[in-house]
Structures are given as structure tokens and as C-alpha cells.
Design a protein around this nucleic acid. Structure first.
Lengths: 362, 362
DNA sequence: ATGAAAGCGCTAACAC
DNA sequence: GTGTTAGCGCTTTCAT
């Protein structure tokens, strides 16, 4: 039943058990070449009999393809966006016959570089990465990748031509701003998650993630379209860390004429608004309005529901995998830049000031 | 600079470039055996020069260890518990020098079986699995694992002796119930996530996940300790799916004498309570109270904050990895059953009925 | 239709 | 201290 020797049975054991040569056994099991139906059957039986399982490492080494893709995600796959992205990538990979080796860059370019290297050393057939913020991304260039295909998601690294799958955060944000303006909001707050910033600041840090830049541009053009002057906009850049973002929200709320609505560039920032508003007994959707990027279960379930710019995460993951797989089998494709549409889901976190005018709160 | 041939440089290329034999090159790079300092240096230089990177697959095959562990997680690693567990496992694995191959069982035993097999075929050195609900777990038995070590987390499969890392949900739940009782709650609702149930039911399904059983037992003993009769407890088992759990909540709330507090066995169920309460204009922590298992960022940020039974997820992940790694290097250790303590974090979602008596709502 | 043998890239005896 | 060589488990060319 088990192998004769202590370790796992190999194809040699199968061949012996079936009374054929190694080559025939291999042919029968991988059904290629010419094998008579009877021997093939005999081999398959023998394989099951002795509990043979192919060693995928040996197979990978021989055929030069591991059936594995590497995923380098950022720290927060605790975040409502990246956890879903991870899941959809893992699932999509499986449906394409691939397994995924996952690594976490902690949003640190050096860790990312190392992770890519490690994954490459493990002979992944391709990589999906959420690039960390940095100016130099040479480790994502073809020579560094040894020709292995790469798809980046969520953000586009500076100065690197790659296949990317991102979302149209620009128009989503723009539309969200216009919506708020149409509800009578004239003083806009914008809480932007930024890396490399300690605490919070009013000065725009450089560089910024492309996804954040998109949101910033969308915000700007939305405000312009709604005729809201720059002096009625309060932009605050904050470290993505609860204490810092809560301080940033407090700062906004403490201004003489605070914004009536705060847009946040991600869920962590939105949570900070919720927290600070709660502490101050400010009711969301009445005393202060809130819009954030990325939908989540809690944003839909709480009262009031949070208005969000929703991004098609599952689709993003699936597309990233299918593009990668396609490049694996046909490496000479031109790079693609795929941008998925976003959608504003209006819930109750944005007060209608035309019905219920804004009241000063103390 | 690059390899002479088209493909990646191998150790043979390094040897040639350094003018030494294959063996010496290997010794120098893996620093073992005897190599003179000068040759060693020359080899290392040559390696860097030609951009050599060891092929970890070949190495794995030779040494019989891949440096990879497999993680079989359930569907919902979108869930606030499993996403954090995944992250801590990935991080802990890296710190032990391992990479993780991740797979998703979708809470389906057949998928789990297949995932384990696939991972084993890829020669993982060990496995961490969140076992799906089932009676038969033969694929988690040593013979099926080919001797590879296994650590299960969160739940313990029936009839399988394994090393497990779980949390003490029993005492956490018990304490949560006693807390609520001490605040004057006398009618308790318990919304239990159950698999294999369609919609919701009042009858206890069999089998249940060990983690859920623990919570059920904790609830029972907490209620007993508080002297709350069974007739003042409303237990509802629901499919883990929004529509079903929301219907279950509605059912509870529609009873002639509805519970004053609802305990939910996980976050998805808690979200359902939030949703239904919101639709009915019921205020959490006043009109209806809520306690759930598993802390999350949103539970802490929203108003009112949700009282939770918090589990030490990060620690659980780290421990699972360290136990697994230890078993990999020393396979003959006896199985361990590690149970981590839980903690009730009291926030404002449980009304103090001794101060603010319960009012009937219509 | 089947078998013998080479070789993927690496480590580790074993010689010298 | 260094080189030669076998072999991990598999696929695949080349004979037969």
C-alpha cells in the first residue's frame, strides 16, 4: 500500500509496481506520447495502489515552470481593500491552475525588493505586486525580474513601464465631490493618507502614491466643477496611523470654519473621522458629513451608512491574474494599462444641507 | 554582466567565472566545508558580477526541504479575524525564514482536502490549516500528510490528534454574558453562525465548529451563573450570509418579548444586527444591546463602540508558525494543545438597564 | 509502443 | 583546500 522505502513513493516505484520502465510510467501518468491503453491503465492503478503523488518541485525543475505566482502585497492586507484583493487573487490563481506565494512588503521599498527577489529565487512564474511608494523601482524592471512577467495593481510605480490594473479613483472622487456639493456642501475637508509623513501636515508630500494622486486630482476637478474656491478647501495629509489621523481630524474640526464634509482617501482615515466625531458627540450625516474611498461591510451596515467611492476589487484581482497568466504563456505581449471604473454609492453619511441647513456646533 | 547564455546564470557559470570547480563555488556560496578565504571571496565576487541567484527549487530538491509552508485558510479571510491571522502568519513565517503558499478552502471539506494535497505536492515543509466543518478529516491524519507536520488554528477537527492553537472563546463568552447580566439584562439573544444551515433555525445543527461549540458552552454557563432561565434565552442558528443573518435578527426582534441584548458568534452576524437595528431605527446600546466575538477597527471606531470578546490573533498566528517550525526541525514532538486567553472589551453597545431601564419599542 | 539515458541546478559524499 | 561525481524526481529525446 505504501512505498517500500520510508520516504514517499516516486515514479520509479510506480514503474516497478506496474512492471514498466520509468519513461512509460511518466508517459502514462502525464498522458503524452504513445502508451497503449492497457499499460496506461495498469500504471495508473499502480500509482493509486502505492499512493504515488508527483513531486511538483522535481516536475517544475524539469519543465522550467513552477505553477506558482508570487504576490507582494503591502502591510495592510488587514485593510478592507487589500484583503479582498488578496482573496480574489488567490481564488483566481487557483482557477487558472496556479498557487500563490504571498509576501508582505510593509509598504517599505527595501522589504519589497527583497520579497521580489525571494519569490524569484523560488522560481515563481510571474509576479503581482502592489508597489510601495518610492522613486526607484529598478527591482521591478525586466532585467531584475529575469524576464518573468509582472502585473502591478492598485498603483503605478514611477518611471516603470509595466502592465497595471488600477481603478479610476480620479473620476470616482470627482463625482463624490460633485455629489456633496449638490447637497449644499461648500466647505470641503480632504484627509489624505500619506507615507513618509509624521503626524499630519498641510503641505503636500512628495512623492505620493499614484492612486492617491488620482484621488487628489479627482477632488480638485470636482471642487472646481462645483465652483468651490480653494480657500474653502482644507487639505490635510496624515500618516496612516490611528493616532496621527485622529489628530488630523481634530485639527480640521477645530478650525474656525470647519468643513461640513470630510473626504478621506481610505478606510483607515474614515475610521479616524468616526472615532473623533464620536468622541465629540458629533453625529455623522448631520453635524459632519463623511465620504471615503473603498466600500466595506461595516460602511454599509452602520447607521448612518457611509457614502463611498467603491472600487471593483474582485474584478481587479481576477484581471490581474488573468493578465499575468496570459503573459506567462505568451511573454511577448505589449504592456497593458487597465483602469477599472469606480462607482459612488450614496448612503446617509452626507447631510443634505439644502433640507437641513448646517448648524454651528460648539 | 549577465549570463553568457539566454537563461539565468547557474552556479556552473559562477564556477567558470571564478575559475574554480562547481563544488568549490557551491561551498563558497553556501559557506560550508573548507574553502580558502581568497577563493571564497573570488567566487562571491563572480556571483555578484554575473548576477547569479541560487535556484531555490533545485536547492530544495537536493536538500529535501523547500523553505515553504502551506496555509489553508477558509473563505472569509475578508473577515476581521482571518485576514489578521493570515497577515501574522505570513510575517512570522518570513521571520523564521519561510515563505507561505496560501490556499482557500471556502469552508468546504472537499476543497480543503484538495488544497492540502496540492500544497503537499508542492513539497511544503509543513501546514497550517483552519479546518472546515466535517466529521471526517482523514486528509489531516499523519499518513495523508506524508509525515509533514501540521498545526491547526482557530478550531479543532473532530477525532484528529493534532497540534492546535486556539483561543479560549468559552470563558470569553461566559464573561461577556455575565457582564451583560450585571448590567441588568435578563432576556438574552444568541445569534450563532452555523454551516450547513439554510436561512436560520432554532434547532441546533450538528456538527458544529469546535470554536462555535466553545462559544455556545460559554454562553450557557454564563447564563447559568447569572441565573437566567433557558426560557429567557433565544438561540438562533443562522447561515453565514447577510440575507439569512438579517432575517434571523428580524425574527429575534419580532418576538413578543425580544431579547434586550444580542450576542453574536462572529462579526458577520454583528453586522447583521447593526443593519437590521438601523433599518428599524433602533439605537444600539439603548434600544438593543450587542456583543460580538472578535474585535475590529470599526467596532472600536463607531458610535457606540461595540463590546467584544477579543481574541489575540497576532499571537495566535505567531504561535502557530513557531510551533510548526519547531516541529519541522524536530518531528518527534508530542502534539500540543495551545489555548490563548481572550478578553472582554467593554464599550458602549451594552445598555446599562439599571440606569436606563429597558423601554418597549414598537 | 516501450526503454535507456540525459539533464534541469543544486549539495554532499568521496577522492586527492 | 579543491575537484569529481552521484543523485534528488521528474520529463523528454533518441533508440529500438
Amino acid at each position: 500500500m505504501a512505498a517500500t522505502r520510508g520516504s514517499a513513493p516516486t515514479i520509479v516505484d510506480v514503474a516497478a509496481a506496474a512492471g514498466v520502465s520509468l519513461a512509460t510510467a511518466s508517459r502514462a501518468l502525464s498522458n503524452y506520447g504513445r502508451v497503449s491503453a492497457v499499460t496506461a491503465e495498469r500504471v495508473r492503478r499502480a500509482a493509486i495502489e502505492i499512493g504515488y503523488r508527483p513531486n511538483e518541485l522535481a516536475r517544475a525543475m524539469r519543465v522550467g515552470s513552477s505553477g506558482t505566482i508570487g504576490l507582494v502585497i503591502i502591510a495592510d492586507f488587514t485593510n478592507a481593500f487589500f484583503d479582498r484583493a488578496t482573496k480574489s487573487i488567490v481564488d483566481a490563481a487557483k482557477s487558472h491552475g496556479y498557487q500563490v506565494l504571498i509576501s508582505n512588503s510593509d509598504e517599505d521599498i527595501e522589504v519589497e525588493r527583497l520579497a521580489v527577489q525571494t519569490l524569484l529565487d523560488k522560481q515563481v512564474d510571474g509576479l503581482i505586486v502592489v508597489p510601495s511608494l518610492a522613486r526607484a523601482h529598478d527591482h521591478l524592471l525586466p532585467p531584475a525580474l529575469g524576464g518573468k512577467p509582472l502585473v502591478v495593481i492598485d498603483r503605478i510605480p514611477d518611471g516603470v513601464a509595466v502592465t497595471s490594473v488600477t481603478t479610476d479613483d480620479r473620476s470616482g472622487t470627482e463625482q463624490a465631490v460633485r455629489n456633496a456639493a449638490s447637497l449644499g456642501h461648500e466647505r470641503l475637508g480632504f484627509l489624505v493618507s500619506a507615507f513618509g509623513v509624521h503626524g499630519h501636515t498641510l503641505e503636500r508630500p512628495e512623492p505620493m502614491l499614484s492612486s492617491v494622486t488620482e484621488r487628489v486630482e479627482g477632488f480638485t476637478s470636482g471642487a472646481r466643477a462645483a465652483g468651490i474656491a480653494k480657500r474653502n478647501q482644507l487639505w490635510v495629509y496624515s500618516e496612516d496611523e490611528p493616532r496621527a489621523s485622529e489628530a488630523a481630524v481634530s485639527y480640521m474640526l477645530d478650525r474656525p470654519k470647519p468643513p461640513t464634509v470630510i473626504f478621506t482617501s481610505n478606510n483607515d482615515m474614515a475610521l479616524a473621522v468616526l472615532k473623533v466625531a464620536g468622541n465629540r458627540r458629533l453625529v455623522i450625516g448631520r453635524d459632519i458629513s463623511l465620504v471615503t474611498v473603498d466600500d466595506s461591510q461595516w460602511a454599509a451596515a452602520i447607521v448612518p451608512g457611509i457614502t463611498v467611492v467603491a472600487r471593483p476589487v474582485e474584478q481587479l484581482g481576477e484581471l490581474a491574474v488573468s493578465r499575468l497568466v496570459s503573459r506567462i504563456s505568451n511573454p511577448d505581449q505589449p504592456d497593458e494599462t487597465i483602469v477599472l471604473p469606480t462607482e459612488v454609492i450614496a448612503r446617509e453619511s452626507v447631510a443634505n444641507l439644502k433640507v437641513l441647513p448646517y448648524r454651528e456646533v460648539d
